[in-house]
Design a protein around this nucleic acid. Structure first.
Lengths: 349, 349
DNA sequence: TTTTATTATGCAATCGTTTGCACAATATAG
DNA sequence: CTATATTGTGCAAACGATTGCATAATAAAA
């Protein structure tokens, strides 16, 4: 393959020739850490020439030499999902001021793709990885550890206790919902669980079981439906499953908002309206939810802060051998009261 | 600064030593373009050793040598805006299979930040740039052209006719809306215009003026309000401005959906409800819009395809000196009929 | 067989930086 | 006024890959 030399790329060598010094001197003059080794006048002359000649440093060459790319990989299920995009902004709010650039990949929650894409990130020499897409038993951490690349998981956690995770208080969220429904008279509560391969689905289901019992309520076997994905269609399907199986309940706790939206729609089409006949709750508090009737009562999580905190931990891991990185950081959640919960209907469905 | 050598990084040299050949031979064996220069057995032996030793190519070193990073920069106003995220997926649907990785930056529609971030991308040696965040008179194209880096703008265009742009048919969208409103009896139509520094705001305003006249309608001076940003708050503010200025109209064409949502809300709070008292239209067809009452009648654009086509053009520019790249590609739009438009109210506001 | 063409591999330069080391030149101490 | 410490630069070797060129080994042709 023919190597096509880019036009007009000015290098350290060019500046060196222009000013009449060695390129190492130019390098030192242009790096804030080393420029005080030099005579101020020389530094000035070099910096002047650099801007005049339109020099732009070649990060590739620099990274090759220093073994640091100043790139962090961000692994997402899907950038178009409004749940994940704010994580990126939160992470970048920390990373950009420090000079890091992020490289975002989308796994579509396919673990094959995730492995492949993490490989891509490693080939590109990322200094660290924020993984918002791990399955609860995610694989290639060993590989990553061999490479010595720090990793934190964001919004989801894994089985591997050695991997720092920043998550929301899934358990507390579910507890708040159960308590809230209970206080309004609901005694028969169903659950549409999320994918159990994800910690979010898993933790929320466990919390549901735990706190139902704890508050003194039964969980009939058929009171739980299992979604394969966190989307509207699965919410609809699960809601219909609950209907068909003849369960009578007055409220459904859905493992996230999208499941809830799907459930409400399907129930509505079956003549069971929310909140008149049944109460429904969500989780996450997606944007625009407040505009969609009947207004989903849900748990607000802090996506931006999950990203921010993940990045803060990661930078500590990348720059120090600080052994005090917390293994799990749990961010507080908050119940958002809207219109999708009412007193139980006398004839529950 | 101390250079910390990464653990266990196996290089071509290591494989070469292991197999007993030169590293150049290893390189050739591992690149599909050159491996037929070699004896099949040697290739096999090398590839075997490579996988056995867990070799992962160092893209940095490769890029430094070949002057190609296989990275494309994607410049967005804001990744959390549901309008832009699909563009990324569209672009990646083309780029990823070709081996490109994308590097996404967020400008927040701040042109200072845009310049800075394009600089970051150039330092990192991107092979091309998809810019979804240019102002209509965007600056550093000269810089980019000096660097010989291909660039296309997506969803927005610039004044620079030499820059290929992939956009939606803004003019046709506005025409469809005016026609649609006219057919339902509306004769007094206002416009909430988007930022005029963006081609979308600009083109839609011009189209509004043009097609109103063309269909035979007047545009009173005060029938146009100007938003400074494409968001709900500005939509509210502009709607109230129209109200206060005493304009009487039966419909408002908003330059995008978010302006429309803000306008509907503000009008509602002032006792002017949509669609009973006034009809409102949007532009873009954001997700979840169908769930928000009264259901915004709007123009559906093809964000994914904008990204896809942009990437297709860009790859042609990156790999060939094809002179036949179209300067402007305009994708078709479609009117989506929902509930926010009705027959004009006898007492327009 | 000898000569020529072909093929498979190795050698070494290169990409643009950074940085340990050597060495002048100057400043400080004795 | 010598001896030592300090300071500012240059030299050259990396970093890990790719690739033009040379050359040894083999195959084809004469």
């Amino acid at each position: 393959m023919v190597i096509k030399k880019k036009r007009n790329v000015v290098t350290l060598k060019d500046i060196a020739k222009e000013v009449g010094v060695d390129k190492s001197t130019v390098s030192r003059a242009l790096n804030s850490g080393t420029q005080d080794l030099l005579t101020p006048e020389v530094v000035a002359k070099i910096q002047d020439a650099a801007t005049r000649m339109g020099y732009r440093k070649n990060q590739l060459a620099r990274s090759l030499r220093t073994h640091r790319t100043m790139i962090v990989g961000i692994v997402l299920p899907d950038i178009t999902n409004t749940l994940f995009a704010p994580i990126v902004r939160g992470a970048e709010s920390v990373l950009e001021p420090l000079g890091y650039t992020s490289m975002i990949v989308n796994t579509d929650d396919d673990s094959e793709r995730r492995n492949y894409l993490i490989g891509v990130l490693l080939e590109r020499g990322v200094d660290g990885i924020i993984d918002a897409a791990p399955q609860i038993s995610a694989s290639p951490f060993k590989t990553i550890e061999e490479h010595g690349i720090p990793l934190v998981t964001a919004i989801r956690k894994t089985d591997h206790t050695s991997i720092p995770a920043v998550i929301n208080d899934d358990e507390e969220g579910i507890r708040l919902l159960i308590q809230y429904l209970y206080a309004r008279g609901h005694r028969k509560i169903a659950h549409i669980a999320g994918p159990l391969a994800l910690s979010t689905g898993n933790l929320r289901l466990n919390a549901f079981k735990h706190h139902m019992i704890h508050i003194g309520l039964d969980i009939p076997e058929k009171a739980i439906a299992y979604a394969n994905r966190f989307d509207e269609d699965e919410g609809s399907r699960c809601a219909l499953d609950l209907l068909v199986s003849g369960l009578d309940c007055s409220a459904v706790i859905c493992a996230n908002d999208r499941l809830a939206l799907g459930a409400i729609k399907a129930l509505h089409q079956s003549g069971v309206t929310c909140p008149e006949h049944i109460s429904v709750t969500g989780f996450n508090d997606l944007p625009f939810l407040n505009l969609i009737p009947p207004g989903l009562t849900t748990i607000r999580i802090q996506q931006f802060d999950v990203g921010r905190l993940s990045a803060e931990l990661l930078t500590r891991m990348m720059t120090t051998q600080d052994a005090t990185i917390p293994r799990t950081s749990i961010l507080p959640v908050e119940l958002v009261e809207r219109g999708s919960v009412s007193k139980p209907w006398t004839n529950s469905f």
